[in-house]
Amino acid sequence: MAKTATLHKESIGLKVVIYIVCVILAILSLLPFFIMFTNATRSTAEIQSSAISLYSAHPIQNLMRNWKVFNGKSFDPSTGFVNSLIVSTCTTILAVYFSCLTSYALFAYEWKLRDAFFGLIVGIMMIPGTVTMIGFYQAAYQVHMTNKLAMLIIPAIASPNMVFFMRQYLQASLSLEIVDSGRIDGAGEFMIFNRIVFPLMKPAIATQCIFTFVGSWNNLFLPQILLTKKEKYTLPIEVALLNSDIYQTEYGSIYLGLSLTVIPLLIIYILLSRYIVEGVALGGVKS
C-alpha cells in the first residue's frame, strides 16, 4: 500500500513538471506571433517603449498608419501575394497529378525498366535542388527563361518524393481488381486512371497537397536567384526586403507586413492542423 502511494505521488509530481514544460513550450510557439500581431497595431514609439504589450493607444489608427507606410514604399506586397499564389497553386496541381500518374505506372504495370526507374527515383529523392542551383540558373539564363514563374512551376512534374509516397499508398490501398473491372467495362487505361484510380487516391492527395503548397509558398532560395524583376517577386522575396533599409524604424509596418504573410498559412493550419500533424509522420520521406 505504502509503495503505491509513493508511486502515485511521484507520478503526480512528474505530471506537474510535464504540464509546466508543455505550457512553456506552447507559449514559446505562440509568443512570437502574438508579438507580431499586436505590434502591427502599435506605433513605433509604443513598440520602442515596451515591445511585448497588448496596449495600443489607438490600435485602429496605428494599424491604418502602419498600412500606409507599408504600402507607400518601393515595393508592393499584393504582387508578391498573387505571384506566390500562382506558383504554389500550379506547382501543387502539377506535382500531385503527375506524381499520381507516375506512381500508378510503377504500381499497375509490369515493364522492363520499371525497377530501374524506381531505383532512379529513390536515388534522386534526397538530393536537394539547392545543390544544383548554379546549373539550373545558368541553363535557364542561357535560354532567357529567368524571370519566368513557369520555371518554378514546371519542374514540379518530376517530384520524386511524392511519387515514392504515392506508390507506397497505392501498394497499401489499391487492388488491381478494380482496374480489371474497369477494363472489362471497356474503359481505356488513361480513363481508368483519371476516373477510377485518381479519385481513390484522395486521402493521400490531400496530405501531399498541403505539404507541397506550404513548401512552395515558403520557398526563398531558388526564386530569389531566378527572379530579378520586381513584378515577378514572390512573397518570401518581399519579406526579405522588409529586413533591408527601406523601413528603418517603422517597426509597426514591418510587423504588419510579416503578419500579412503569416495569416494565409495560419488559416490553413488552423483548419487542417489535425491532418497536417498526422500527415507529417505519414509522409515519412519529405524534402
Binding site: 512573397l235 529586413n243 504573410t261 498559412l265 489535425r274 497536417i276
Partner: peptide, 17 residues
C-alpha cells in the same frame, strides 16, 4: 499542434520576425 506550428511558417518570415 502548437509545437509543430512554427514548422509551417515561411522561414523568411520567421527570420525577419
Amino acid at each position: 499542434i502548437l509545437f509543430y506550428m512554427p514548422n509551417i511558417i515561411t522561414a523568411a518570415t520567421v527570420a525577419v520576425l
